[in-house]
């Protein structure tokens, strides 16, 4: 592993430079741009109604209705309502089931990287961290988001209120932009400052209960990122630098790994590793492709 630190100074200067030289600007930023477009498109689909009277989606990410027919709702908010002891209308439950179905298929945390507006803010914070070479300060454990998830689901039982919805930053952004309820935006500022100056990727990769729930939803998803050319890896570490959940990369890049698929559902499928990799190690894959015999590698193999 010594070779990984070989050229650290060059790479911290400009992550992804080698990929840009090798593949060109578009290929080395493609998924990032598409992701931003996706996040802004989803927002615009909601915003055309209030702004121009063209109603595609009504509501916000907490609950919405597509073209006045298909209900969609946030499974976490729905679970909170259920936990508080209220039996909602069928459309809310149906909406949550549809959303869970969609993300179970596409990969749970696709929500985080391709839809959630908070991701734009936390990615910016992470970029600033890198640009200013801010030191890695305090660390918190990745699994705290699951404790947060438990907390968010227990509080409605104890208080009878969907407590998390008071502070949930995702609908706050949408409510601010769609309904002018901008009073909660200070919370986004707090998250931005936290991510920039206190803990690296604190919100999206450590604390957010919505992300934790979608991570669980995506456990069985067929779409995964795979290190298909792990042999070509030159240990430049650019993927580790940009990855919001870098612990998921370790198993596939480990020397002698026989499992190319990133099976850890913490992976947000953002594809930034695909962008920044000059030797083009990664790509999106169907995990049920016969290429990947889809068996759990023997303990002996994984320890090789």
């Amino acid at each position: 592993m010594n070779s990984t630190h070989r050229s650290t100074s060059e790479h911290t200067a400009h992550t992804g430079q080698s990929a840009q030289n090798e593949l060109g600007w578009w290929r080395s930023h493609r998924l990032l741009i598409l992701r931003r477009l996706s996040q802004l498109s989803v927002l615009s689909l909601f915003a055309t109604g209030p702004l121009f009277g063209l109603w595609l989606f009504k509501g916000n990410l907490s609950s919405s209705i597509l073209l006045d027919t298909i209900p969609l709702s946030d499974p976490l908010a729905t679970m909170q309502v259920l936990m508080s002891g209220h039996w909602p209308e069928l459309s809310l439950l149906l909406g949550a089931i549809i959303v869970v179905g969609i993300y179970a298929l596409l990969g749970g945390r696709v929500f985080c990287s391709w839809v959630c507006p908070v991701n734009i803010i936390t990615d910016l914070a992470s970029w600033i961290r890198r640009a200013l070479s801010l030191p890695r300060t305090s660390e918190i454990a990745q699994n705290w988001r699951y404790y947060m998830l438990i907390l968010v689901l227990i509080l409605p039982i104890l208080t009878g209120l969907a407590v998390w919805e008071w502070v949930n930053p995702v609908p706050i952004v949408y409510r601010a932009l769609l309904f002018g309820a901008s009073g909660g935006l200070w919370l986004l500022a707090v998250i931005f400052l936290l991510d920039t100056f206190v803990v690296e990727r604190a919100w999206c990769s450590h604390l957010c209960p919505t992300g934790a729930l979608f991570s669980l939803v995506g456990k069985m998803s067929p779409i995964k990122i795979a290190a298909v050319r792990a042999n070509a890896c030159n240990n430049c570490m650019d993927c580790f630098t940009v990855c919001p959940e870098r612990q998921v990369l370790k198993p596939v890049l480990k020397k002698g790994s026989t499992q190319p698929l990133i099976l850890d559902s913490d992976c947000t499928l953002c594809g930034r590793c695909i962008d920044v990799c000059a030797p083009r190690v990664f790509q999106y894959e169907n995990r049920f492709n016969s290429k990947y015999s889809n068996r759990i590698p023997l303990k002996v193999e994984s320890q090789l």
Partner: peptide, 17 residues
């Protein structure tokens, strides 16, 4: 009010309607 707060998902669909 208390039941309302436990049930309301704050989606704004009523506002848009």
């Amino acid at each position: 009010e208390d039941d309302f707060l436990s049930a309301c998902i704050r989606c704004g669909l009523c506002v848009e309607a």
